[in-house]
Nucleic acid binder design. Structure first.
Length: 570
RNA sequence: GGCGGUGUAGCUCAGUUGGUUAGAGCAGAGGAAUCAUAAUCCUUGUGUCCGGGGUUCGAGUCCCUGCACCGCCA
């Protein structure tokens, strides 16, 4: 039994995520966690909400709530949706927790001691009306180059000239509209990633088994142009982790907070502490401290490609730069983007399906299956309602659902709702066992390698074997001449349901649970031996014919949803 | 504008370090079966692998170039 630490990129607190976000991190992480647990490994699967930064403050202001209240409410909302999708986090934490504050300050202190932080003085626009410094993109004015009247502080969208906020004519805050702005001198902390470059480079180079997507992005940031740059890790905001050196004040940094991208990944660690605080675990250090039991932990991170630089460079800089024995990530699984019907998902335009809406129209398993079997692993991929309808109807309803239905109903009509006892398995059954064993091995191989789409394909092929068997054995024909053999065939078919439940659980946990419940079985654990697994249900064992596992999506529904989620025209 | 990605059967996608007649699922066509959610199973793919050059005994796979779409940067 091995020990696996798994984290999913933590979703930002502002709003509900769309299906592309889900399939890029949380969902495949959950698949992997469920698979490893299923195989008997010890797993700690963590996720959290990422709560700091300007967008959270603005969203709270828009909602008319104090930012802390807003975040607390949204955390509950996101936790409920995650539960709805059956994301099996051992703990769903918050980056605004006291634990993360203390840990973030601790890391900053260690980095300072190791001379990896430098102070930089820069100029930034302060808005008196808003009572805050404004990030460049929250300042608009007239472009000095082309006269466009809504040029942003960083660039003019009209002539594309790159700008400084001071260049703008009549600059104003996009938050309040106020023109009462003042350029002020302010001091910030920079993480000296340049000093870590060689160490990071060597480390990334050693990861030859990582997805190309992960290493190519990391190498690009490390080597392209001027190479890896030092990164500002503080901001002039109210909402965030106050800048401190461990427990001590940081002279000159009063009133500032750490940048959200500095404290967010540290939450992976703090989340394990929160897990213990919540009474769900006893010892977080054996997962995170290599001097305290974590040396044999395999740590896997899941994320969309936009998060790769922070996980391959920034966070490792924090970990390595601390000089302390923290667990470093072993494998980073990254995903491309999922597009929606020929374009991008768009929060602002309401284009595409968001997590709450998805659960309103169909149960989690439907989405889990489609998303995972079409995960954007090697390139961006595409969600279309047509494809969704076809895949779900065919794979889930016809291939798996109908298999369960036909064998249980046939048994009920001929033998009653108990496993029939006559007859014995013969050549046909042995051949199926051999085929399943081979497929299972391939399935395990793809799951171990986190090849999500290929694993899904293999699982589907395993389901198909059941239908092939029934077609070939044809117990409905056998029954007419040889009742005992038909009984054995039915017994074999019923046992396949139990096997399928266990193997399918990582993808479609609810249906798997329904299958086990119908067969009145406990999850016997991962099948080490297919032949044994297919003798698990003894003769005379009672079962129930379950309701249909999956319903089909009608053409009318498909059309309705297509229209409903197309988004407002702009 | 700069950077990056993609372009393989009607659709969604596989194609390892260049090597035999380019693959899977779905859709389509034909057949079998009738236990089942009109559900299953079998058979069936003559595709200028975006175009044009080039390297090579040999390129979907490498190089150059053109086109198209997409994303990122701000």
């Amino acid at each position: 039994m091995a020990r696996h630490l798994i984290t999913s990129a933590i979703p930002y607190i502002n709003g509900i995520k769309h299906l592309g976000n889900l399939v890029g991190s949380q969902l495949p992480a959950d698949l992997y966690a469920r698979y490893l647990r299923g195989r008997g490994h010890e797993v700690l699967f963590l996720c959290a909400t990422d709560e700091h930064g300007t967008p959270a403050e603005l969203a709270a202001a828009k909602a008319g709530k104090p930012v802390a209240d807003y975040c607390a409410e949204m955390h509950v909302v996101q936790a409920k949706i995650a539960e709805g999708f059956r994301l099996s986090f051992d703990h769903f934490g918050r980056s605004s927790s006291d634990r993360n504050k203390a840990l973030t300050q601790h890391f900053a202190g260690r980095l300072a001691e190791n001379d990896l932080i430098r102070e930089v003085s820069e100029k930034q626009m302060y808005s008196h009306a808003d009572g805050r410094y404004l990030p460049d993109r929250y300042i608009e004015g007239t472009c000095p180059n082309c006269g466009f009247d809504s040029a942003r502080g960083d660039q003019c969208d009209n002539c594309t000239k790159q700008l400084d906020p001071v260049d703008l004519i009549n600059p104003h805050s996009t938050i309040s509209g106020s023109t009462d702005l003042e350029m002020r001198e302010t001091k910030h902390l920079y993480l000296r990633q340049t000093a870590m470059k060689d160490q990071l480079d060597t480390w990334i180079d050693s990861k030859t088994d990582w997805p190309v997507l992960t290493t190519s992005i990391a190498k690009k940031w490390l080597r392209d142009g001027d190479g890896l740059q030092d990164r500002g890790i503080t901001r002039d905001l109210d909402w965030g982790v106050p800048v401190k050196k461990g427990d001590a004040d940081w002279p000159g940094m009063e009133g500032k907070v750490f940048y959200v991208w500095f404290d967010a990944p540290i939450e992976y660690i703090a989340c394990a502490q929160e897990w213990v605080d919540a009474g769900k675990g006893a010892d977080w250090e054996r997962w995170w401290r290599t001097d305290k039991g974590a040396e044999d932990v395999t740590y896997t991170q899941f994320m969309g490609k936009d998060n790769v630089p922070f996980h391959t460079l920034s966070f490792p800089s924090t970990i390595l730069g601390s000089g302390e024995p923290w667990k470093l990530v072993d494998y980073i699984k990254s995903f491309n983007y999922l597009n929606y019907d020929g374009g991008q998902f768009s929060t602002s335009r309401g284009r595409g399906v968001f997590m709450d809406q998805a659960l309103e129209i169909l149960p989690a398993d439907y989405w889990r299956w489609w998303l995972l079997s079409h995960a954007p692993e090697s390139s961006d991929s595409e969600f279309t309602w047509d494809n969704f309808q076809q895949s779900v109807n065919k794979d889930l309803a016809d291939v798996l659902g109908n298999f369960v239905s036909r064998i249980t109903k046939f048994c009920r009509s001929k033998f009653g709702e108990v496993v029939p006892e006559a007859g014995a398995y013969g050549d046909k059954e042995q051949a199926v066992i051999a085929a399943l064993t081979e497929r299972l091995r391939a399935y395990e191989g793809f799951m171990d390698a986190i090849e999500v789409r290929k694993a899904a394909g293999e699982l589907r092929a395993i389901w198909v074997i059941g239908n092939e068997y029934l077609q070939d054995a044809a117990p409905w024909s056998t029954f007419k001449t040889d009742e005992a053999t038909a009984a054995a065939q039915v017994r074999f078919g019923l046992n396949l349901i139990g096997l399928y439940a266990v193997l399918s659980a990582p993808f479609i946990p609810d249906a798997a649970a329904t299958m086990l419940a119908a067969m009145k079985m406990d999850n016997a654990g991962w099948p080490e031996d297919i032949a044994a697994a297919l003798n698990a249900l003894p003769a005379g064992h009672a079962f129930e014919v379950p309701e249909n596992l999956f319903r089909k999506i009608s053409d009318e529904e498909r059309e309705e949803w297509q229209t409903r989620f197309a988004g407002v025209r702009t």
